[in-house]
Amino acid sequence: MAVAGQVGSAYWSGCSPAREKYVASFRSLISAMTMRKQGARAKYLGIPLSTLSNYWTGRRVPSAVVLGTIYDAVHRSTGAVPDQLDQLERLRKSAARRNTRPASPWESSDIRAADRISGVSTAPSSPSNTAPAQGPARDRRSSGNGKVRETISALVAAQSAGDRRGVIGVAWSASKALTHEELCAGAADLYASGYSALGEALLLSGRERSHEDTMRLAITLIRAGLTSQAELVLGAALPRGGSGHA
């Protein structure tokens, strides 16, 4: 066990080779900080020491947003970092995909949304690869809702600009500000327009969504005819294996 203010040096026993490669790069980033103690580093980064310890050993992989925030903080403290963010993000995505432990509902939602957004192109997806949306997309209910229109415009603009973090931030904010019906309508419009990755991001970015809110959103999607999207939301929230305890 690590002493106070320190973290263990060994990799977590569940690390895959891809995760070990990512962790080595992450450690190189953190070690570039002028602070020598992990406690001081964690304080500067604004995260608990236990969280930094989990990132350091590979027990947990941060989301794209968290990794970007850490990278920016290290850059501010040193003026230079050993690895570029895009390289770190590629390694992080590979490590997250090969996660060997059951992720919490919040981690699963964040990782899946970040991975989808990181890989999308600046152009809409091909309609042939996007399931036709039904319900709200058919009558375009979102066109009459200013908040939904603004959210869709902000998501598309961020993606077109290649602003991965901006997409994640807009989606996360929308998950807090929009009702279940508005989220459903916005996602339906995005899927119908060929922006399936953005529709998925909008639905999966509610990392603090309660079980009750998740069920209500899923029901709203099902009633709108968006069954596969409802399954996506439920799959991100349920423990791996899809079963829980009564």
Rank of each mutant, 00 (worst) to 15 (best):
V3F: 03
G5E: 03
G8W: 10
S9W: 05
W12N: 00
W12D: 14
W12C: 10
W12P: 00
A18T: 08
R19M: 05
E20K: 15
K21G: 13
A24P: 02
F26G: 03
R27Q: 11
S31L: 04
T34A: 12
K37I: 07
Y44G: 01
Y44Q: 13
G46F: 06
L49R: 07
T51G: 09
L52A: 15
S53I: 09
N54L: 14
N54D: 06
N54P: 00
V65F: 05
L67P: 00
I70F: 02
I70N: 02
Y71T: 05
D72L: 08
A73L: 04
H75G: 10
R76Y: 03
T78C: 14
T78G: 09
Q87D: 13
K93W: 04
S94I: 08
R97Q: 11
N99S: 08
N99C: 10
P102H: 01
A103E: 15
S104M: 13
W106S: 14
W106A: 02
S108Q: 14
S109D: 08
D110M: 09
R112M: 12
A113Y: 01
D115S: 06
P127A: 07
P127L: 10
N129K: 11
T130M: 08
P132I: 09
A133G: 14
G135Q: 08
A137T: 06
D139N: 07
R140T: 08
R140G: 11
S142A: 15
S142C: 08
S143K: 12
G144R: 14
G144E: 05
G146A: 13
V148K: 12
E150M: 12
A161G: 13
G162P: 02
D163Y: 04
R165H: 14
V167P: 03
G169E: 15
A171C: 07
A174D: 02
A174C: 12
A177L: 15
T179M: 12
H180R: 15
L183A: 12
A185H: 08
A187M: 12
D189V: 09
A192Y: 02
S193N: 10
G194M: 08
Y195K: 10
Y195L: 07
A201Y: 11
L204P: 06
R209P: 02
S210N: 05
E212I: 13
A218D: 03
I219H: 11
I219Y: 10
I222F: 01
R223P: 03
R223I: 04
G225P: 04
G225A: 04
L226F: 02
S228E: 14
A230R: 01
L234G: 00
G235R: 15
A236E: 03
A237I: 11
L238E: 12
G242N: 03
